[in-house]
Design a binder for these strands. Structure first.
Length: 340
RNA sequence: GGAGGAUUGGGUGAGUGGUUGAAACCAACGGUUUACUAAACCGUCGGGCCCUAACCGGCCUCGUGAGUUCGAAUCUCACAUCCUCCGCCA
């Protein structure tokens, strides 16, 4: 969530950010609500100051009559404060709702666009593999080798459930171990986080309220993470770090849970858009400046590319357009493998 | 799931309704002294918000949220976390 001061001082920039990200939000309304909020709070605080001042007079008053009179006066002030606080409540509701919708300001280089079709290819690596024969997809190959079982997966879990078996399971272990070695060598601290988290962590990372339909919720009002970014960022929440500690780099490994609501008709086949999977995530906590965050984001992207390259997987890097990045995001690349 | 105890500033820890945002000690920081270090002594020392060019000033904050009261760290309720014991434990 952006600071209201920053929003007010850079209103035009934030408005342009919303336009670029195709987010509808009435920022002028936010300013109006914020003005009202500040005015009311000033009134309340002035009354409270009076209350505090007279309270100590009451404490030191020796004359019983004076004391009683002061208390009577303060009873009236108390009622006024309570009335103002009631007025403040709906104002704060609207203020918070609007604040949670304010988009983070995207980097200059983020292209304009309406959908992922407008994403821009930045660079490619390797040659797109071409076979002299008609190739099979991953589903066919894995089934043939007993690496996965979708039918029993669906029987046990339901839609898009899967069992990884034999070499399929071994391959997953191998990739995790390989990734662990790869990123540990680049000064990332390994982290295995909790996957059941409190709501506040999802607000903190912008997954709520935006992705509410995609998040699993427990009967205790806790949430299952869709990415270890959530507990990874929650790690230092409500804490203040010394500049000398930065950047903090985590390589978090966790199961991820996603409802994939509304995506049932897309990409129907195979191990994509599943409800449950495992993921290694790079997390870097750096100084809160645009330059620093973009710099470390480039490093993360570079690490991912080199990871792909070390496996010899041809790929291209795509810069996502405004409409295809999250409300909280500044810049985003997709590194897409070229599969035959 | 049940019973009991706890939660105060960077740390230890006092404080059970009224100049307590909070004693004391430690740590930290600045200074005096010192050839240097140590010691000693003096001073500073939580955070957020509002106002201000700044100073000054104001509000909030003693796990969180409500409540009682003219006034709450202190009383009431709910919740969270930690500790001890019992139960459960694929």
């Amino acid at each position: 969530m952006l600071d209201i001061k920053f929003i007010r001082e850079n209103l035009d920039v934030v408005k342009m950010a919303a336009v670029k990200k195709k987010i509808t939000i009435d920022l002028d309304r936010l300013v109006v609500v914020d003005d009202a909020r500040k005015a009311l709070m000033t009134t309340i605080e002035t009354r409270k100051a009076e209350q505090n001042r007279v309270s100590s007079d009451i404490a030191s008053a020796t004359d019983a009559a004076v004391r009683t009179q002061l208390i009577t006066e303060m009873q009236a002030v108390k009622i006024e404060i309570q009335a103002d606080e009631e007025k403040l409540k709906p104002l704060m509701e609207e203020w918070k709702t609007l604040m949670l919708q304010v988009p983070n300001v995207p980097d200059m280089t983020v292209p304009d666009g309406d959908s992922d079709a407008d994403n821009v290819e930045i660079r490619t690596w390797g040659e797109q593999t071409k076979f002299a024969f008609e190739s099979k997809d991953h589903v066919e190959i894995m089934l043939k080798h007993g690496m996965v079982d979708f039918e029993r997966g669906a029987k046990v879990h339901g839609f898009r459930g899967y069992y990884m078996l034999g070499d399929g399971a071994r391959l997953m272990w191998a990739i995790w171990n390989y990734a662990n070695d790869f990123f540990s060598a680049r000064d990332f601290v390994q982290m295995i986080p909790p996957t059941i988290v409190r709501k506040s962590n999802l607000y903190g990372t912008g997954h709520l309220p935006n992705d509410a339909d995609d998040v699993y919720r427990t009967q205790d009002e806790d949430y299952l993470i869709g990415t270890s970014e959530v507990p990874g960022m929650g790690f230092y929440s409500d804490e203040i770090l010394e500049q000398s500690q930065l950047p903090v780099k985590f390589m978090a490994f966790s199961p991820c849970f996603r409802r994939e609501a509304g995506s049932h008709s897309k990409d129907v086949k195979g191990l994509i858009r599943v409800h449950e999977f495992y993921k290694v995530e790079q997390i870097i906590i750096c100084e809160a400046s645009h330059e620093e965050s973009v710099k470390w984001h480039e490093e993360i992207t570079n690490n991912s590319e080199e990871f792909m390259q070390s496996l010899g997987i041809p790929h291209h890097v795509v810069l996502n357009c405004g409409a295809d990045i999250g409300q909280g995001q500044v810049k985003k690349y997709d590194i897409e493998a070229w599969v035959p």
